[in-house]
Amino acid sequence: MARRPTAPRPRPGTRRAAPTSAPAPQDPAPRRGAPVGRARPAPAPSEPAAAGPDPGEDGGGGGGRVVQAAGRFRELVAGRPWRRRRRAILATVAATVLVLVAGLAAAVFLPALQVQQVTVSGLDYVEEGDVQAAIEPHRGDSVLLLPSSDIAADVAEVPGVRDAKVERAWPDGVRVSVTEATPVGTLTRTDGSTAVIDAQGRELPEAASEAAGSELVPLTADGGAADPEGAAAAMSEVLASMPESLRGSVEKMTATSASDVRFVLSLEDGGTRTVVWGDAADAELKGKVVQALVAEPGTEIDVSSPVAPVTR
């Protein structure tokens, strides 16, 4: 029987070499079809270790205490809920305002809301056509933006109109209520022409004399008057401001200036009395003095200075 070869024995004086370690096992080759370069899944985070004592507090090493600040940074970056709600509310309000403005702008130019119908009331001697002509420039204006004060001012410029009230009449109309001026006298000018005037001395339409009947007082500015227009205005103001009981007894009135108004007063016994009135001031006091002195003898009562009246 053949013998197995034996390993050679080491020589005396030599050291036996240590056995070499086995090579480290390498990662197995990737399977065919597996993605190359994909990172391995990170291990699940373990529970944070209990916080130990701060080395900096007990005089230990120089390290500081670890503070979990992730939550604080998250609040700074992410908007707070009430801020998000405020932005949503502001956006809703802005959108609503834009819709309302757009609707109003569309309504202003809507033909169905433009002035077409005009109704005028309160007329006696003033012609309705004159009032309609004053309103004509405002036809086509929007009823929503109706310039009521402008229309009333234009209507008040019509002869015989004292004032006017303007109201909307939906959807496309306007109602105008007119108050006519009250005629107080018939003025005879220096050139012989006549005109019916109101208490402000404004000339009224001729139809006003028919409306007033025989109640108009003849007013005459003397031919030598330096200011016929001022004299006429003063006479109309005096006639309008004197007491009603006295006005009904005035037969006629004349003036050479605004401060020299006089008139003839008819008495109950059929006689007359001339009254020197002066200017239009202190009408109430002058009226009371005339009524107190009308029974005194004489033909003239001078109340141009009512605190010192004179009878002649």
Rank of each mutant, 00 (worst) to 15 (best):
E210C: 00
A208M: 10
W170P: 13
L265Y: 14
L187A: 10
E244W: 00
S305V: 15
S266H: 05
D227C: 04
D191W: 04
A232N: 13
T194R: 13
A221M: 12
G185C: 04
L293W: 07
L219T: 11
S259Q: 14
D302E: 04
V217W: 07
G230T: 10
S236P: 08
A221D: 08
D172K: 05
V176T: 07
L216K: 05
L216Y: 08
I197T: 11
S304W: 09
S304A: 15
D191K: 06
S304H: 15
G201R: 05
S177N: 10
E268P: 05
V184E: 02
A195I: 00
V264N: 08
V196Y: 02
Q291E: 15
Q200Y: 06
S236F: 11
E284C: 01
S257Q: 00
V238N: 04
T256H: 06
E244Y: 01
A255G: 02
A233Y: 09
P297S: 15
A212Q: 10
P183A: 03
A280G: 11
G230Q: 07
V184Q: 01
S245Y: 06
L267I: 03
F263R: 02
T274V: 11
D198Y: 03
R262K: 11
G278D: 07
L285H: 14
A211C: 07
E251T: 03
A195V: 00
A255N: 01
K252Q: 10
S236E: 09
A169I: 02
A207F: 05
E251R: 09
D227Q: 04
E251K: 03
E180S: 08
V303Y: 13
T194W: 01
A233I: 13
P306N: 09
S236L: 08
S214V: 04
D282H: 14
